[in-house]
Protein backbone atom coordinates (compact mmCIF):
# COMPACT_ATOMS: atom_id res chain seq x y z
CA UNK A 1 0.00 0.00 0.00
CA UNK A 2 2.82 2.35 0.98
CA UNK A 3 4.61 1.52 -2.27
CA UNK A 4 1.50 2.38 -4.33
CA UNK A 5 1.12 5.63 -2.37
CA UNK A 6 4.77 6.55 -3.03
CA UNK A 7 4.39 5.79 -6.74
CA UNK A 8 1.20 7.88 -6.91
CA UNK A 9 2.98 10.78 -5.20
CA UNK A 10 5.54 10.82 -8.00
CA UNK A 11 2.92 11.26 -10.73
CA UNK A 12 2.44 14.55 -12.54
CA UNK A 13 -1.31 14.49 -11.83
CA UNK A 14 -0.71 14.23 -8.06
CA UNK A 15 1.83 17.08 -8.14
CA UNK A 16 -0.50 19.19 -10.26
CA UNK A 17 -3.47 18.72 -7.91
CA UNK A 18 -1.28 19.30 -4.86
CA UNK A 19 0.03 22.52 -6.36
CA UNK A 20 -3.53 23.67 -7.22
CA UNK A 21 -4.68 22.90 -3.67
CA UNK A 22 -1.75 24.76 -2.09
CA UNK A 23 -2.34 27.78 -4.33
CA UNK A 24 -6.07 27.69 -3.59
CA UNK A 25 -5.48 27.68 0.16
CA UNK A 26 -2.98 30.51 -0.23
CA UNK A 27 -5.46 32.47 -2.38
CA UNK A 28 -8.20 32.04 0.25
CA UNK A 29 -5.81 33.15 2.99
CA UNK A 30 -4.78 36.28 1.07
CA UNK A 31 -8.41 37.13 0.28
CA UNK A 32 -9.25 36.68 3.98
CA UNK A 33 -6.39 38.99 4.99
CA UNK A 34 -7.41 41.66 2.46
CA UNK A 35 -11.05 41.46 3.63
CA UNK A 36 -10.03 41.75 7.30
CA UNK A 37 -7.80 44.74 6.57
CA UNK A 38 -10.52 46.42 4.48
CA UNK A 39 -13.06 46.05 7.31
CA UNK A 40 -10.54 47.29 9.90
CA UNK A 41 -9.64 50.23 7.60
CA UNK A 42 -13.30 51.34 7.38
CA UNK A 43 -13.77 50.82 11.13
CA UNK A 44 -10.77 53.04 11.86
CA UNK A 45 -12.18 55.71 9.51
CA UNK A 46 -15.57 55.68 11.23
CA UNK A 47 -13.89 55.87 14.64
CA UNK A 48 -12.06 59.02 13.46
CA UNK A 49 -8.63 57.41 13.82
CA UNK A 50 -7.29 58.74 10.53
CA UNK A 51 -3.98 60.43 11.30
CA UNK A 52 -4.14 63.75 9.41
CA UNK A 53 -0.45 64.57 9.73
CA UNK A 54 0.45 61.18 8.30
CA UNK A 55 -2.19 61.66 5.57
CA UNK A 56 -0.35 64.75 4.28
CA UNK A 57 2.95 62.84 4.25
CA UNK A 58 1.37 59.97 2.33
CA UNK A 59 -0.37 62.35 -0.12
CA UNK A 60 3.04 63.83 -0.93
CA UNK A 61 4.43 60.35 -1.39
CA UNK A 62 1.59 59.23 -3.69
CA UNK A 63 1.15 62.45 -5.61
CA UNK A 64 4.43 64.27 -5.86
CA UNK A 65 7.13 61.63 -5.66
CA UNK A 66 5.38 59.38 -8.17
CA UNK A 67 4.71 62.12 -10.72
CA UNK A 68 8.01 62.04 -12.67
CA UNK A 69 7.68 58.32 -13.38
CA UNK A 70 3.95 58.42 -14.23
CA UNK A 71 4.45 61.42 -16.53
CA UNK A 72 7.34 59.68 -18.27
CA UNK A 73 5.46 56.41 -18.76
CA UNK A 74 2.19 57.93 -20.01
CA UNK A 75 4.04 60.50 -22.11
CA UNK A 76 6.25 57.90 -23.76
CA UNK A 77 3.30 55.56 -24.37
CA UNK A 78 1.56 58.40 -26.16
CA UNK A 79 4.68 59.10 -28.26
CA UNK A 80 4.96 55.39 -29.18
CA UNK A 81 1.32 55.20 -30.34
CA UNK A 82 1.26 58.49 -32.22
CA UNK A 83 4.59 57.78 -33.97
CA UNK A 84 3.09 54.60 -35.35
CA UNK A 85 -0.40 55.77 -36.34
CA UNK A 86 -0.32 59.52 -37.02
CA UNK A 87 1.48 59.39 -40.36
CA UNK A 88 -0.70 56.53 -41.60
CA UNK A 89 -3.92 58.26 -40.48
CA UNK A 90 -2.94 61.49 -42.20
CA UNK A 91 -2.14 59.51 -45.41
CA UNK A 92 -5.53 57.81 -45.29
CA UNK A 93 -7.31 61.12 -44.75
CA UNK A 94 -7.97 60.56 -41.07
CA UNK A 95 -5.69 63.31 -39.76
CA UNK A 96 -8.70 65.01 -38.20
CA UNK A 97 -9.09 62.06 -35.83
CA UNK A 98 -5.55 61.65 -34.49
CA UNK A 99 -6.28 63.82 -31.45
CA UNK A 100 -9.52 61.95 -30.81
CA UNK A 101 -7.79 58.58 -31.02
CA UNK A 102 -5.03 59.61 -28.61
CA UNK A 103 -7.47 61.22 -26.19
CA UNK A 104 -9.80 58.21 -26.15
CA UNK A 105 -6.91 55.81 -25.63
CA UNK A 106 -5.38 57.88 -22.86
CA UNK A 107 -8.51 59.00 -21.03
CA UNK A 108 -10.34 55.70 -21.23
CA UNK A 109 -7.44 53.37 -20.68
CA UNK A 110 -3.76 54.17 -20.94
CA UNK A 111 -3.56 57.18 -18.61
CA UNK A 112 -5.10 55.36 -15.70
CA UNK A 113 -3.68 51.86 -16.21
CA UNK A 114 -0.13 53.07 -16.96
CA UNK A 115 -0.26 55.40 -13.94
CA UNK A 116 -1.53 52.43 -11.92
CA UNK A 117 1.42 50.30 -12.99
CA UNK A 118 3.84 53.12 -12.21
CA UNK A 119 2.28 53.70 -8.78
CA UNK A 120 2.41 49.98 -7.98
CA UNK A 121 6.08 49.68 -8.85
CA UNK A 122 7.04 52.89 -7.06
CA UNK A 123 4.64 53.40 -4.19
CA UNK A 124 2.96 50.01 -3.71
CA UNK A 125 6.27 48.20 -3.38
CA UNK A 126 7.60 50.77 -0.92
CA UNK A 127 4.40 50.61 1.17
CA UNK A 128 4.62 46.82 1.36
CA UNK A 129 8.30 46.77 2.27
CA UNK A 130 7.86 49.58 4.81
CA UNK A 131 5.07 47.79 6.68
CA UNK A 132 6.79 44.42 6.35
CA UNK A 133 9.95 45.87 7.90
CA UNK A 134 7.87 47.36 10.70
CA UNK A 135 6.28 43.94 11.22
CA UNK A 136 9.51 41.94 11.37
CA UNK A 137 11.19 44.50 13.65
CA UNK A 138 8.18 44.41 16.02
CA UNK A 139 7.31 48.07 15.38
CA UNK A 140 3.70 47.09 14.60
CA UNK A 141 3.56 45.17 17.90
CA UNK A 142 4.96 48.28 19.58
CA UNK A 143 2.08 50.32 18.08
CA UNK A 144 -0.40 47.87 19.57
CA UNK A 145 1.21 47.91 23.01
CA UNK A 146 1.04 51.72 22.93
CA UNK A 147 -2.70 51.29 22.22
CA UNK A 148 -2.47 52.95 18.81
CA UNK A 149 -4.56 51.17 16.19
CA UNK A 150 -2.25 50.16 13.33
CA UNK A 151 -5.17 50.40 10.90
CA UNK A 152 -5.80 54.01 11.88
CA UNK A 153 -2.14 54.98 11.94
CA UNK A 154 -0.76 52.92 9.04
CA UNK A 155 -3.61 51.85 6.76
CA UNK A 156 -6.03 54.77 6.86
CA UNK A 157 -3.61 57.56 5.78
CA UNK A 158 -2.08 55.41 3.05
CA UNK A 159 -5.36 54.17 1.58
CA UNK A 160 -7.05 57.58 1.77
CA UNK A 161 -3.96 59.20 0.22
CA UNK A 162 -4.15 56.64 -2.60
CA UNK A 163 -7.83 57.45 -3.20
CA UNK A 164 -7.23 61.21 -3.16
CA UNK A 165 -3.99 61.42 -5.09
CA UNK A 166 -4.41 58.75 -7.75
CA UNK A 167 -7.08 60.77 -9.67
CA UNK A 168 -4.81 63.82 -9.54
CA UNK A 169 -1.87 61.81 -10.85
CA UNK A 170 -4.06 60.36 -13.61
CA UNK A 171 -5.38 63.80 -14.65
CA UNK A 172 -1.89 65.32 -14.81
CA UNK A 173 -0.30 62.34 -16.57
CA UNK A 174 -3.21 62.09 -19.06
CA UNK A 175 -2.92 65.77 -19.93
CA UNK A 176 0.81 65.29 -20.35
CA UNK A 177 0.19 62.25 -22.57
CA UNK A 178 -2.22 64.21 -24.77
CA UNK A 179 0.30 67.07 -25.05
CA UNK A 180 3.07 64.60 -25.91
CA UNK A 181 0.74 63.20 -28.60
CA UNK A 182 0.22 66.70 -30.04
CA UNK A 183 3.95 67.32 -30.23
CA UNK A 184 4.60 63.92 -31.83
CA UNK A 185 1.76 64.40 -34.35
CA UNK A 186 3.33 67.66 -35.40
CA UNK A 187 6.83 66.24 -35.68
CA UNK A 188 5.92 62.87 -37.22
CA UNK A 189 3.01 63.78 -39.51
CA UNK A 190 3.06 67.58 -39.69
CA UNK A 191 -0.37 67.73 -38.09
CA UNK A 192 -1.24 71.18 -36.77
CA UNK A 193 -1.95 71.63 -33.06
CA UNK A 194 -5.31 73.23 -33.88
CA UNK A 195 -6.53 70.17 -35.81
CA UNK A 196 -5.21 67.84 -33.13
CA UNK A 197 -6.82 69.62 -30.18
CA UNK A 198 -10.13 70.27 -31.96
CA UNK A 199 -10.51 66.57 -32.70
CA UNK A 200 -10.05 65.60 -29.04
CA UNK A 201 -13.65 66.54 -28.25
CA UNK A 202 -14.98 64.26 -30.99
CA UNK A 203 -14.10 61.16 -29.01
CA UNK A 204 -14.24 62.25 -25.38
CA UNK A 205 -17.49 62.44 -23.41
CA UNK A 206 -18.32 63.30 -19.80
CA UNK A 207 -18.87 59.59 -19.16
CA UNK A 208 -15.25 58.84 -20.16
CA UNK A 209 -13.95 61.40 -17.68
CA UNK A 210 -16.20 60.07 -14.94
CA UNK A 211 -15.15 56.44 -15.54
CA UNK A 212 -11.49 57.47 -15.71
CA UNK A 213 -11.66 59.24 -12.33
CA UNK A 214 -13.73 56.46 -10.70
CA UNK A 215 -11.16 53.92 -11.88
CA UNK A 216 -8.35 56.07 -10.51
CA UNK A 217 -10.00 56.24 -7.06
CA UNK A 218 -10.49 52.44 -7.06
CA UNK A 219 -6.93 51.79 -8.25
CA UNK A 220 -5.48 54.10 -5.58
CA UNK A 221 -7.45 52.39 -2.82
CA UNK A 222 -6.76 48.85 -4.04
CA UNK A 223 -3.02 49.39 -4.57
CA UNK A 224 -2.59 50.90 -1.10
CA UNK A 225 -4.81 48.32 0.59
CA UNK A 226 -3.16 45.29 -1.03
CA UNK A 227 0.36 46.63 -0.48
CA UNK A 228 -0.32 47.46 3.17
CA UNK A 229 -1.99 44.08 3.73
CA UNK A 230 0.97 42.08 2.43
CA UNK A 231 3.33 44.22 4.51
CA UNK A 232 1.17 43.88 7.61
CA UNK A 233 1.08 40.08 7.46
CA UNK A 234 4.78 39.65 6.56
CA UNK A 235 6.90 37.29 8.60
CA UNK A 236 10.38 35.82 8.62
CA UNK A 237 12.99 38.59 8.55
CA UNK A 238 14.61 40.04 5.44
CA UNK A 239 13.40 37.19 3.23
CA UNK A 240 9.85 37.76 4.46
CA UNK A 241 10.07 41.46 3.57
CA UNK A 242 11.17 40.52 0.04
CA UNK A 243 8.41 37.96 -0.39
CA UNK A 244 5.76 40.38 0.92
CA UNK A 245 6.92 43.11 -1.46
CA UNK A 246 6.96 40.85 -4.52
CA UNK A 247 3.53 39.41 -3.74
CA UNK A 248 2.08 42.87 -3.11
CA UNK A 249 3.28 44.02 -6.55
CA UNK A 250 1.98 40.91 -8.34
CA UNK A 251 -1.41 40.98 -6.60
CA UNK A 252 -1.80 44.72 -7.20
CA UNK A 253 -1.04 44.31 -10.92
CA UNK A 254 -3.60 41.52 -11.28
CA UNK A 255 -6.17 43.36 -9.15
CA UNK A 256 -6.11 46.59 -11.16
CA UNK A 257 -6.34 44.71 -14.46
CA UNK A 258 -9.40 42.84 -13.12
CA UNK A 259 -10.97 46.11 -11.90
CA UNK A 260 -10.21 47.70 -15.27
CA UNK A 261 -11.93 44.82 -17.04
CA UNK A 262 -14.99 45.11 -14.75
CA UNK A 263 -15.22 48.84 -15.51
CA UNK A 264 -14.95 48.14 -19.25
CA UNK A 265 -17.74 45.55 -19.06
CA UNK A 266 -19.94 47.74 -16.86
CA UNK A 267 -19.61 50.96 -18.89
CA UNK A 268 -18.57 50.11 -22.44
CA UNK A 269 -19.78 46.56 -23.13
Amino acid sequence: MALVRNILKQTVTYKLFKSILVNLIDFMEVMGNITTCTIEFFKSLFKGELDRKELIVQCERFGISSLPITLSIVGMTSVIIVSQVAQEMVKQGGGNFVGALVAVLIVRELGVIMSGFAIISMIGSSLASELATMRVTEQIDALKTLKVNPFGYLFAPRVVAGMLMMPLVVIISSLFGILAGALTSDLAAGLSYRVYFESIWIGIFAKDLFVCLAKAVCFGAVIALISCTFGYYASGGAKGVGIATTRAVVWSFVAIVIIDMLFAIAFFF
Binding site: M134, T137, E138, Q139, D141, A142, T145
Partner: peptide, 11 residues
Protein backbone atom coordinates in the same frame (compact mmCIF):
# COMPACT_ATOMS: atom_id res chain seq x y z
CA UNK B 1 3.76 48.76 28.83
CA UNK B 2 6.01 46.46 26.81
CA UNK B 3 9.77 46.86 26.42
CA UNK B 4 10.82 44.81 23.41
CA UNK B 5 13.96 42.72 23.14
CA UNK B 6 15.24 44.68 20.14
CA UNK B 7 13.72 47.98 21.34
CA UNK B 8 11.24 48.18 18.40
CA UNK B 9 11.68 51.95 18.18
CA UNK B 10 9.98 53.60 15.20
CA UNK B 11 13.04 54.08 13.01
Amino acid sequence: AFVFQYSALFD
